[in-house]
Nucleic acid binder design. Sequence first.
DNA 1: AATGAATGAGTATTCATTCAT
DNA 2: AATGAATGAATACTCATTCAT
Lengths: 228, 228, 228, 228
Amino acid sequence: MPAPALIERPGQRRERRKQERPGELLEAALTLFVEKGYAATRIEEVALRAGVSKGTVFLYFPSKLELFKEVVHCNISNRLEQWSDFLQQFEGSSAELLRLTMLLWWERIGSTPASGISKLMMSEGHNFPEIADFFHRAVIQPGQRILRSVIQRGIDRGEFAPIHPDHAVQGVISVMVFLALSRHCAPLNSREFMSIDPVHYLNDQAQLIARGLARTSPAQQASGGGRS
Amino acid sequence: MPAPALIERPGQRRERRKQERPGELLEAALTLFVEKGYAATRIEEVALRAGVSKGTVFLYFPSKLELFKEVVHCNISNRLEQWSDFLQQFEGSSAELLRLTMLLWWERIGSTPASGISKLMMSEGHNFPEIADFFHRAVIQPGQRILRSVIQRGIDRGEFAPIHPDHAVQGVISVMVFLALSRHCAPLNSREFMSIDPVHYLNDQAQLIARGLARTSPAQQASGGGRS
Amino acid sequence: MPAPALIERPGQRRERRKQERPGELLEAALTLFVEKGYAATRIEEVALRAGVSKGTVFLYFPSKLELFKEVVHCNISNRLEQWSDFLQQFEGSSAELLRLTMLLWWERIGSTPASGISKLMMSEGHNFPEIADFFHRAVIQPGQRILRSVIQRGIDRGEFAPIHPDHAVQGVISVMVFLALSRHCAPLNSREFMSIDPVHYLNDQAQLIARGLARTSPAQQASGGGRS
Amino acid sequence: MPAPALIERPGQRRERRKQERPGELLEAALTLFVEKGYAATRIEEVALRAGVSKGTVFLYFPSKLELFKEVVHCNISNRLEQWSDFLQQFEGSSAELLRLTMLLWWERIGSTPASGISKLMMSEGHNFPEIADFFHRAVIQPGQRILRSVIQRGIDRGEFAPIHPDHAVQGVISVMVFLALSRHCAPLNSREFMSIDPVHYLNDQAQLIARGLARTSPAQQASGGGRS
DNA sequence: AATGAATGAGTATTCATTCAT
DNA sequence: AATGAATGAATACTCATTCAT
């Protein structure tokens, strides 16, 4: 055991950093943009947090705005596919599918740094219409489409009442938005609020929504179930 | 009559403006802070929107930060009382009380410029801990207390299942947060989303939550209640 | 005589400065751009030389480049007209007209700050093609046209040999360029060189060129004159 | 047939480059300094143009300023000797000597990259007094001395009128300056101007100046000389 | 009270220079 | 010797704040 791996040789270090630099910078930038907003985040802070100097940031991103765009792009890309892929092949009840959909969203998106992007878009959308549009096309619309298909499946299979799916989608999304924001927004972040476990919360809300959507009221289901 | 109404005497006019100036400035500032964030809002823009010159803003507010604080303070104060006052004396079912509470919140707070403050706190809370704390003490905590008392009333009267009230409060608040934000955040603001009427949405959600909280399911309540 | 004019009242001062500011800034900028070049001139230096602070420059010119453009524009405009107007109505010999043209150029253009613009264009033309083009259209081409018309007049009246006018124009311009640059370029600026008086120099050169252009050689003129 | 010319052995190549590097760098730097000015020229551009990396420049020149100095030094050194050497032994008329002097200047200096140095000094002289002084001592003064000796020779031999030689030197230099600059300055560089061939132009001007300097007019010389 | 010209601290960005490889 | 990633001093530009009018 002659060469202790714990001591990194500088050469290796330099090389490895070069590969990882952009990622480290994007991560630092995401955190700060989410916390402080675009305007209030200084490039030097991003650099500091990534452990490099101011100038290095501009070695990888030509401007603050481009860095911002990259932060948004990199944290959005193809996460949604991971989400929807799984759902196509589900065979159980639509209530259960809804619950799984919401939990899967949490696992794949809500609990990841990607949720910070949503907060960012809420805060900065007005200032960067172009980026907000991209976010809308890449996240909001596909997300809605996925949820709508879940609801529609329930209606098609006679499990849910034939209401306008968008009303239900709206309800589901509000739960997801709240959860995503609660990790990044001071007022939703505080002691009392976050005492509740996200997964628990999602299960509760999924059940609540499914009940509300049920074709026959749960009681009827229950009594009907009781009669059979 | 001697005084032609068409010709405003400058003195009067000036006098009137002087009284209204702070309010006009606060209104302009609120709009811009909500839209663009604190850092990205320039004092000159606020002045322009209020129809005065940059210097005038500093006549009424010693600094940008103080203006910001005032915007938060003025739009929060005593709205909550208006909200809770009414609820003390309600005598109907707790499900109905919950519905009324949510609708009243919308009428007195959610649909007013005060909702912009919530968006502001979500965006800027991290940057201004002092103000965020004030917001938390003045809005979040009292709001939670009001909602908790509504839920507790339902439990005490045997209408709601004896679950931990905070879980339900959480659900109600997420609906309110979503609605408040949807008026000010680009991504929630878009075509599809806002096709739904807030009052309608609140009614739906109130009903959903009440069902979920019901000691027995409404159907059971109805039939079971009849039988017992 | 109560108010001593020597003591400027601050109010007056402020007012007057506001009117004169742009001119003062342009003058300071011209001097520095000519001396140090565009890139090496710092805005703060311009401000300092004009007796104001950095920020004030941006109150009047949106960017360094715009300031540069304005410096070029303002020092070029309509000087050439002043030059050519006079020449239309001249009735003497073309040799004399050429001499007057050159002296008038010195008086109206060469000896003014406008000559600095020529030096600037020589130094910075490559970096600012757009501005160089403007300079070419606004100064070079009209200037050549004026000189060419003077030469052409001599040819038409049989005073000058019917050579290609441009060759002569070239010679005249080289004299003017040299003189314009000698005021602003270190190497041409030095002791020995500038011991010669510009007006004297111009007279000499004008005579030289006129002789060279003369239809008959001076000797023939002289001997012819002797015979008559 | 051992060494296939197509395949350069790296060693040789590297060796050869090593020798040529400084020259290639100086050449690239000269071009860029002349075109864009000192401040606007980036070291990286110089490197790029010389086909090496930024760091390599600093291997050969300790700083940008030193590179600049070297550019000036290397392009000035001993060219003037080449010029003057030839002139010592000339035996023809002084008018012819003047013509040859100017043409030789063009061949040895004016048409070479050295002319760029003159442009550089015109543009940057103010910023680098030390270098401008060197240029003055190494180029301007010797150049004037050479021209003055030519004129003086003409006066001594009774060919030129006994005027102050500097007036004539001035005239000759203005022609040379104009020609040197015309190759590097945008405004003098343009279509119309450069339609004239430098050698042709120099011949014309040399003749013009010689005529102007002639003790008696050439015609008189011719006839008078014949008669006497 | 109101104005808007003036200020200067603060931030994004550039680029000469260093240095580990 | 050569590279190019990293640095940080320098500079254009912004904008909250001041102040003479």
